[in-house]
Amino acid sequence: MPLFDDLAVSAVVFAIALAGMFVNRKNLVVLLMCIELMLLAVNTSFVAWSAWWGGLSGQVAVFFVLTVAAAEAAIGLALLVVVFRNKRSVDVDTIDTLKG
């Protein structure tokens, strides 16, 4: 049953990325990688459903998601540079001046 296999891969990748965001307490770059991985898992899921329905709209959506992911990565890395210039570090622990 190919749909189930594809969705399982997507769910496992998504779970790894989500776990990475909570387990990783060290590096902001790893957090950005986790975000990208989540979006890639979503893309896998879109393609799997699209193939199952036999339509193209899910596969078109993947291009939109990829574009947004690229913009998100650009802004995330820019923010990372700003944080590094201010703090001289990209550790998660150093951004704790504001106490939610």
């Binding site: 989500l18 979503v42 995330g76 703090k87």
Partner: peptide
């Protein structure tokens, strides 16, 4: 402070967006 607030908001906001998108794949399915 601005850079720090933006970074926190970005990481959490991107995670929320990804969750929303994952829910969208279920609805599309």
């Amino acid at each position: 402070l601005g850079a720090e607030a933006a970074m926190k908001y970005f990481v959490l906001g991107a995670m929320a967006s990804a969750l929303l998108l994952y829910a969208f794949t279920f609805l599309y399915g």
